[in-house]
Design a binder for these strands. Sequence first.
DNA 1: GCGTATCCCATTGACGCCCATATGGTCCCA
DNA 2: TGGGACCATATGGGCGTCAATGGGATACGC
Lengths: 176, 176
Amino acid sequence: MLIRLAKLCLISGVSGVFWSPGSLRERMFRVMSRFLSNATNRIDAKGRVSVPSAFRSVLAQRNVQELYCFQDFVFPAISVGGPDLLERFERQIAAEDPFSPDANEMSLLIHGGGVFMKLDAEGRLMVTDFIRGFTGISDEVTFVGRADHFQLWQPQAFVAAQAQARGERKLAGKRS
Amino acid sequence: MLIRLAKLCLISGVSGVFWSPGSLRERMFRVMSRFLSNATNRIDAKGRVSVPSAFRSVLAQRNVQELYCFQDFVFPAISVGGPDLLERFERQIAAEDPFSPDANEMSLLIHGGGVFMKLDAEGRLMVTDFIRGFTGISDEVTFVGRADHFQLWQPQAFVAAQAQARGERKLAGKRS
DNA sequence: GCGTATCCCATTGACGCCCATATGGTCCCA
DNA sequence: TGGGACCATATGGGCGTCAATGGGATACGC
């Protein structure tokens, strides 16, 4: 527990300049905080789970009311961010050849595979079948910060993926 | 030809709606009223199925009373939108040589392969043989949001198509 | 007149909104 | 420095509302 809270404490206090897309105003917001670290919360009998407070305050700072959630392209995880996330994807569609089947597939994933969700008054979200089926989540959720968004993982799947990523980096070379 | 028609679909649809000029307020409105996410509902003994509430409210915001339904150009799915969808296609045809093979075939698909439908008082639509035959739908329908329209899929066909699209994206390494 | 589609009402199960509580941390003061 | 009041967060649960579904009744077309 001590370790978990210590991790969370880091999140709110982060500051510093880093590059991100968007206008100056948007960047000013993002500079102040980002989604960092991870925490595991339980799902209650009604299928709800509390979003970590640190993540909620990041959302509040960014004036994010509705959460755009989609099934991640590479990991068995649900990625969660503001509507700007969806707009970035749509911009990406518009950027590449809009005639390509690629764009059509992209739309199938980000529109057909994406949901807008809202938190309740206590900062909890419903863990729907949409989330459970794709992630394998049953009774616990691991929230993982990814700077401009965060992810929902099945706890064991997360530690496994993290361990594998760590191993691959070790094999890849001695770069930091 | 199929690719060509798919192009027309993308031109008139996804990219055409959301990147048109307009005030921030107008864009906000459009953002709020997109068809997003997917949901699977049962067909009752009379052959009716409830359109998800989220989609119905989008239709209401756009003052869509009659639904224009047509067989999708690339997927085994029925695409559903307002009359404006059909009008965009017709404008597209009018833009080309009216006697060209392209325009001819386009008309064959959007006119010959399209119907108008209405929802009942509870927001349900009849699943006709027109829909069943083309999609393979039997007792359940998956509604899939596609930004400016939505689609009716046979549930298994949808997860298969989505999985394939995701697999191709993963291989391409296009994760943003 | 019979099959089909539309209208209307009932049911129920899920979800949103609200308040309660416990657990653990922080801060203040002796 | 240690104890205790105070606070924040995570979690549990009651309850009302609404959406999804089922089914009877009626209108319409062949």
